[in-house]
Simulated scan of single mutants.
Amino acid sequence: MSKGTILITGASSGLGEEMARQFAALGYDLALCARRTERLEALRAELAAEHPGQTVAIKALDVTDDDAVFAVFKEFAAELGTIDRVIINAGLGKGAPIGTGRYDANRQTAMTNFVAALAQSEAAMEIFRAQGRGHLVMISSVSAVRGMRKTLTTYAATKAGAAALAEGLQNENVKGIDVSIIYPGYIRSEMNEQVAQKTKFMVDTRTGVKAMVAAIEKRKAKAYVPALPWVPLGLAIKHLPMSVVRRLV
């Protein structure tokens, strides 16, 4: 018997793809969406072979297309009967130092990581409010804890905005609806594979996602993952002088 239905955006690669694998292994039916449907098809085939009898529905979705976000979420809910959890995971790691002529890259990051997260939150909460229950999970980043420099400036700001959006829903405290904010540390993925070998505290995708899934399953309001080193390091980044933070991250 299924443990429930989880909708994951950005499920064709990286953290989203690995979350799909690990939640399928826990017995969940899945609603997976991303731009690259050929990757989703391959993932569905893999999961069907490993977990026969479980439902894995897939749809193409560009999360920056507002109308498509609402349509796809509603289609999944209609087809599967319910959506128990929505994981807002789709994101973009582009970015350039402010004022260096790459506003296009920074704007694209802002639209994908914040404006699209708003659309996904709206679409998910409409379903949850109608059901009277649900679990919204916002994938933020440890970079959201403090303003970051150079190529991370816009990315960190968008992830901080997404976290604040989810925190506002926690503050609203809608009956029957849980909201979790996950702050992943440096987890190897396609988004950061070019810097993976140079970044301190990097863990492999499976290990990092295992920590994410554990926090999500516990419906934690906020979680730095993996807990070590990111719980103490996150506090340090938040409160230490900026001159010290520059040496840490």
Rank of each mutant, 00 (worst) to 15 (best):
I181Q: 03
Q194E: 14
A90L: 12
R39N: 13
E193S: 15
F114T: 02
N173Q: 15
Q120S: 15
I8K: 11
G4N: 07
R102Y: 15
E190R: 05
L136V: 07
I98R: 06
E217K: 13
A42N: 08
A157G: 11
K210D: 15
G99M: 01
M1G: 15
G161A: 00
A34H: 03
A34S: 08
E46N: 08
A116M: 03
L30F: 13
P184S: 04
G53N: 04
K94E: 15
Y186H: 15
T112N: 00
A24Q: 10
G147T: 07
R85W: 13
N171G: 13
A116G: 00
L26E: 14
G161I: 01
A57D: 04
Q54E: 12
S12N: 07
A96D: 14
M191G: 10
A157P: 00
M19P: 03
T158I: 12
L228T: 12
V86M: 13
A31N: 11
A42K: 11
T153N: 10
D67G: 12
V249Y: 14
L152E: 12
V56C: 07
V174P: 04
P232V: 02
S2M: 11
T9F: 09
I6K: 09
S140F: 05
G10R: 00
S189P: 11
L15C: 01
E79A: 14
A42H: 07
D62G: 00
L40Y: 05
A78Q: 11
D178R: 13
V249K: 09
V174S: 10
S141Y: 01
L233N: 03
M125H: 05
A31Q: 06
A90W: 09
T55Y: 07
V231T: 15
G176F: 07
M1I: 13
F114Y: 12
L15M: 05
T5D: 12
A166L: 03
A223T: 02
A77I: 13
V209D: 00
R188T: 14
A78S: 11
A123L: 06
I187D: 04
G161M: 01
